[in-house]
C-alpha cells in the first residue's frame, strides 16, 4: 500500500514517503511519436453496448443528456436533415434501458408515450418528431425536439434559496398552463417533478409522458400502461393515492406540481422529500408554512394542492394558475396605481 498524502491543519498537502523502492529498470520512449490529441473523449456508453452508434441508419448518437430508471435520452444528429442542409439537425432521442427494453411490451409503452405527447399540442409541452425502430439492434426509440437550457432540478441546485416570484411566475404560470391543457385533453402526466420540466431558450417545456395516461375514450385503441403490471413513481413527488396503488388521476399531478412550485418558491421541498404517505403519517401537513417567495394570495391555492387526501385536493391546474396571477396585473388595479 502507498501512503496517502496527509493534510495538516492549514490544509497544506504533505507528501508522506512511500513504502516502495523506485523501480530500477527504467525505459524511456522520449522520441516515440504520439498521436494528435483530440479535445474530449468519453468512454462509449457501455450499458447500451448493443446499441449502434447510428440508429436506423439516420440518427448519430452524440452524447447522453439524461437517464433514469427506465430510459436514457441522447443528443443525436439527424444525418438525413444534415444532408439537406438543415441548420439545426439535432434531436433528442429516447431509448429504453437495456433491462427494461427486454420486457415484451416495452416498445408499446414507448409508443404510448410518443402518441400521448404528440396528441398534446401546446407551446409548453415538448414536441415529439417520430417513433422509430432500429431493426438491427431491435430497439424502439422516439425522436424529439432538442431543448437547450436547464431542467428545474438543476435550477434548484443553482438557486438553493428559491426564486423571487417575479422570476418564478414566468416558470410556474406556463407550467400550470401546460398541465391544465393536458388535463383538459384527458391526459395525466403521472411523473411530474423538477427534472421533467425544462427551462429552455424557447420557454418552459413539460416532457416525459412515459408514465402518462390517457383517460377512457381518449386515444382509444392505444394500449394503456397497466399500473398493475407496471407501477412506477418518484418518491418525493408521488401523491399518496399513487403510492397506495390507486387509480392515477389528474389529482396526482396537482400534488406533484404543488411540491415543485413550493420548492421553487422556497428552495425546500414541502415535506423534506419524504414520500407523501410518510409525510401524511407524520402530520407534516399541519406544520406547513407558506414559501417565502410566494405571494400571499397564492398560498391558499398551493396549500389545497398539497393536501394528502385526494378528495381534499379540490383544485385544478387552471384554478391554481388563476390564483397565482398577481392581482397587480389585473386591469382595474393598474388603473389605480399612482403614476410616477
Amino acid at each position: 500500500m502507498t501512503d496517502p498524502l496527509q493534510t495538516d491543519p492549514a490544509g497544506q498537502a504533505l507528501v508522506a514517503p512511500p513504502g516502495d523502492d523506485p523501480p530500477g529498470d527504467l525505459t524511456y520512449f522520449a522520441f516515440a511519436e504520439s498521436k494528435e490529441l483530440e479535445p474530449a473523449r468519453t468512454s462509449a456508453p457501455s450499458g447500451f453496448s448493443t446499441m449502434p452508434e447510428v440508429l436506423a441508419g439516420r440518427y448519430c448518437i452524440e452524447r447522453l443528456l439524461g437517464a433514469g430508471g427506465m430510459g436514457a435520452v441522447y443528443r443525436a444528429r439527424d444525418l438525413l436533415a444534415e444532408q439537406y442542409g438543415d441548420p439545426d439537425p439535432y434531436v433528442a432521442l429516447k431509448v429504453l434501458n437495456e433491462d427494461f427494453a427486454e420486457s415484451p411490451d416495452a416498445s408499446a409503452v414507448l409508443y404510448s408515450e410518443f402518441c400521448i405527447t404528440r396528441y398534446l399540442r401546446h407551446d409548453n409541452v415538448l414536441r415529439v418528431h417520430g417513433f422509430h425502430v432500429d431493426t438491427s439492434c431491435e430497439r424502439a426509440f422516439i425522436t424529439m425536439e432538442l431543448m437547450r437550457g436547464l431542467t428545474l432540478d438543476k435550477l434548484l441546485c443553482e438557486r438553493p434559496l428559491g426564486l423571487p416570484w417575479k422570476e418564478l411566475q414566468d416558470i410556474v404560470l406556463p407550467l400550470l398552463d401546460a398541465l391544465a391543457y393536458a388535463h383538459a385533453c384527458g391526459v395525466v402526466h403521472g411523473d411530474m417533478k423538477p427534472s421533467n420540466v425544462m427551462l429552455s431558450e424557447k420557454g418552459v417545456r413539460l416532457f416525459d409522458f412515459g408514465l402518462g395516461r390517457a383517460e377512457e375514450g381518449v386515444l382509444a385503441g392505444l394500449p394503456h400502461l397497466s399500473r398493475e403490471r407496471f407501477n412506477a413513481w418518484t418518491p418525493g413527488y408521488a401523491a399518496p393515492e399513487l403510492l397506495e396503488h390507486r387509480q392515477l388521476s389528474a389529482c396526482a399531478d396537482i400534488y406533484a406540481v404543488a411540491c415543485v412550485i413550493y420548492e421553487l418558491a422556497s428552495g425546500k421541498h414541502p415535506f423534506r422529500h419524504l414520500p407523501s404517505t410518510q409525510a401524511r403519517d407524520q402530520h407534516l401537513g399541519s406544520a406547513l408554512k407558506p414559501p417565502c417567495h410566494l405571494p400571499r394570495h397564492g398560498w391558499p391555492a398551493l396549500r389545497t394542492a398539497l393536501a394528502f387526501d385526494a378528495g381534499a385536493r379540490a383544485i385544478t391546474a387552471g384554478q391554481m394558475r388563476d390564483a397565482f396571477i398577481a392581482p397587480s396585473s389585473w386591469p382595474w388595479r393598474r388603473k389605480i396605481r399612482p403614476s410616477r
Partner: peptide, 26 residues
Amino acid sequence: RQCLHWLNRRLGQELTVSAGRQDSII
C-alpha cells in the same frame, strides 16, 4: 462540484422507481 451535487440529486431524489424493483439505488 456543483455539477456533481446536481447529479447526486438527479440520481437520488429525481429518480423514477418501479414497484417490482427493490434495489432502486443508482
